[in-house]
Amino acid sequence: MDITWGASASHEIAWGGMIAVYLFLAGIAAGAFLTAALTDLFGKNRPAKLIRAGAYIPPIAIVVGLLLLVFDLGRPLSFWKLIFNVNFSSVMSLGTFIISIFTAVALVYAYLIWAWPVAQARGIQITVAGVEAAAAREVPASGLQALRKPVAVVGSLLAFGTATYTGFLLSAVSTNTFWSVPFLGISGVPFLPFLFLVSAISTGLAATLIGAIDCSDLTLYKKVDIVLLAIEILLLIILYTSVSSAFFQGGLANLFWIGVVVIGLLLPLILAIYGVSKHKNLVVPVCGMVVVGGLALRYFVVYAGQMVR
């Protein structure tokens, strides 16, 4: 209403699409890193292509995300002040360090994985069919490669920190009833870090699988994907019942029901179960939809928290 000069301007959105994409990319980076590093550490028959895809995605995703973040600042050139002025009560201040260190470790790990096949190839006859097998065989780690597993361990912890941080960043805003909604009503346990962690692993795994498309056997990973999708559906049901229905109305309703629920969860879940049971390779459509759904989820959460207050 504009009947009198001075009438309240419509509520401004402080954090828009750039932040949503940044949160999404940070999640992809963390999830892909966990996929690669955990496979590297614990996999018995390690598919080298999958590890490589999962190691190369994180540095690219996180660096693009951080660039978006810097450009979104009111004063982009002053971003370095975040490093030198620390506020321990601010989640963002702590997150700055988690993400910075994660980015560095992800770059180191990507380099080690890039250098890895070279070390593996020494003294091994490489045939077209033999590359995969060679990667699976353990060669005594030497030189820099001795660092690969420790880096994978440290990086995994930081990736876990990064994925949950994107949730804590929003949930720490206690004056925002949507972002700070507690998990199952338990006060002090925020909901968003759980949702963003599961979505991060799910989208990161999906992006990695797309990158490792012609890999031999990915059944285990496809099954993990199905479990993650099921958990995410459960979490969204919890969210839906925990907050006001006003958050799921208006323009955001389409984004939530079509983008997040149908494209991001239900369709890939049905297709993935069908694909695994019929031994059909549906990696690209399934994983593509999971990734799109992850982006829709970040958009929805970022905007819903600011549209309705």
Binding site: A14, W15, D72, G74, R75, K81, T175, R309
Partner: peptide, 21 residues
């Protein structure tokens, strides 16, 4: 001088009192 313009405070203020100059 210390502000980087991250807008975290804008999201936190329940009174919409802040803006980016």
């Amino acid at each position: 001088d210390k502000c980087v313009g991250c807008k975290y405070c804008l999201t936190a203020c329940p009174y919409d009192a802040r803006f980016i100059n």
